[in-house]
Design a protein around this nucleic acid. Sequence first.
DNA 1: ACTAGTTAGATAGCGCAACTATGTAGTAGT
DNA 2: ACTACTACATAGTTGCGCTATCTAACTAGT
Lengths: 135, 135
Amino acid sequence: MLGEELYVRIARLHRLIATDVVAGPSVAQARTLGRLLADGPQRVSALAAAERTAQPSMTALVDRMEKAGWVTRRPDPTDGRAVTVTVTERGAAEVAEVRVASGRALDERLARLSEPDRTALRAALPALDALLATD
Amino acid sequence: MLGEELYVRIARLHRLIATDVVAGPSVAQARTLGRLLADGPQRVSALAAAERTAQPSMTALVDRMEKAGWVTRRPDPTDGRAVTVTVTERGAAEVAEVRVASGRALDERLARLSEPDRTALRAALPALDALLATD
DNA sequence: ACTAGTTAGATAGCGCAACTATGTAGTAGT
DNA sequence: ACTACTACATAGTTGCGCTATCTAACTAGT
């Protein structure tokens, strides 16, 4: 089955990219910052749902990113319970940097592959997106 | 750059498969059990190197798997310092089960994709392996 | 053979990321 | 106004990673 084949490879690849991260936001933080940059400021609960985590997990994640100065919490003017998480300029710069750095680490590995292999990976990107969209 | 594109998707996919895991070995444990099944009993340090973790991390991972009854530690007869980690029958059964289960969860998602998307993913498997082999 | 250095693994102690259960406000419905 | 629900925070646990350090055992050099 394809699922079984993919499962192991994704697990190992994740380990690979997590190891290559040197500084700045962790993988989970980069994931969340990326989401915030793509979709704009959001509530904690909306972020948690988007990232498929429990709400307390997201609260903690936002805590750490706020402490690092990458996001800010702002009270929602229309709802006193809600909090809006926004990426700061420093956060945006940081995520751009870590993306380039992690991308470069991966690119160095990709450079050692054959051209057909790289083509196959490039061709699989839309399929990966479709897979991620299955909710 | 391709690396940047892949980076984010792998991170999200990992989150996806980790969320789908219901019981049994975690992703890290399944990864290590799979390695042990593929390459046979190994020392802790060999496992750590293969899984790209620090040796104390692997000691802890083996601790948890040993407690769960999935592996055993045995003294190496030729080297008094070394320990050989072996998968138990229960461990082998468990990893087969979790692979099928996780594979199935992914397969359910894959079933919702288009045939060309599935073909593209299947075609990318060798490239993923090549990427994993870049050490 | 003895000492010095190296290697294998375990331990201690840390941080991050996830979870469940629960608490505390604020909002909304009747 | 009371009740129910919702949004977030807090407490406490677990898993997985790390570095620094310890002990025991092996290896080499004299």
